[in-house]
C-alpha cells in the first residue's frame, strides 16, 4: 500500500506547483502510470480521495493514463511489449530483455482554477 505515500507525493507536488503557477484549486489530475511501476491503480484511486480530502485538490478527479511495459530484446534486436518484469520476449522466448518503458509514475497535467 505505498500508493498512499505516492498520493502524498502528488499532493506535495500540487501544493508547490499551485504557488508557482498561481492557482487555488485542482479539479483534475492526470497521472501516467507504467505497467511495470508496481502501482495498483485501484489503490491509487482510493488513496487519492483520502489524501486529497480537505486540501486544494479536495474532490478532484483522478485520471490514470496507463503506459505499456516495453523492453528491448537482445536476442531479436527489437522493442517488444511486456506486462511484467519476469516475462519472456513474446517473439523469441528469451529473458534477455532490457526494460525501456513502463516504469513511469508521473504527474502529466492538471486542470486548475
Amino acid at each position: 500500500m505505498h500508493e498512499m505515500s505516492l498520493c502524498e507525493g502528488v499532493l506535495l507536488a500540487l501544493e508547490e506547483n499551485a504557488i508557482s503557477q498561481g492557482y487555488k484549486r485542482v479539479k483534475t489530475v492526470w497521472l501516467e502510470i507504467g505497467a511495470l511501476s508496481g502501482v495498483e491503480p485501484e489503490a491509487m484511486y482510493f488513496g487519492f480521495d483520502v489524501v486529497m480530502n480537505e486540501t486544494l485538490a479536495d474532490g478532484a478527479r483522478l485520471e490514470i493514463i496507463h503506459l505499456p511495459g516495453e523492453a528491448w530484446c537482445m536476442q531479436c534486436s527489437q522493442s517488444v511489449q511486456v506486462s511484467a518484469r519476469y516475462e519472456a520476449c513474446p517473439e523469441c522466448g528469451s529473458y534477455q530483455l532490457h526494460v525501456t518503458g513502463g516504469e513511469e509514475m508521473r504527474i502529466k497535467e492538471l486542470e486548475v482554477d
Binding site: A13, Y23, I107
Partner: peptide
Amino acid sequence: TQSRMVQIEQDILSK
C-alpha cells in the same frame, strides 16, 4: 474564475 490546464510533467517520487 476559468479552469485552465497546467502541464506539470513531474515524477511522483521526485521529492
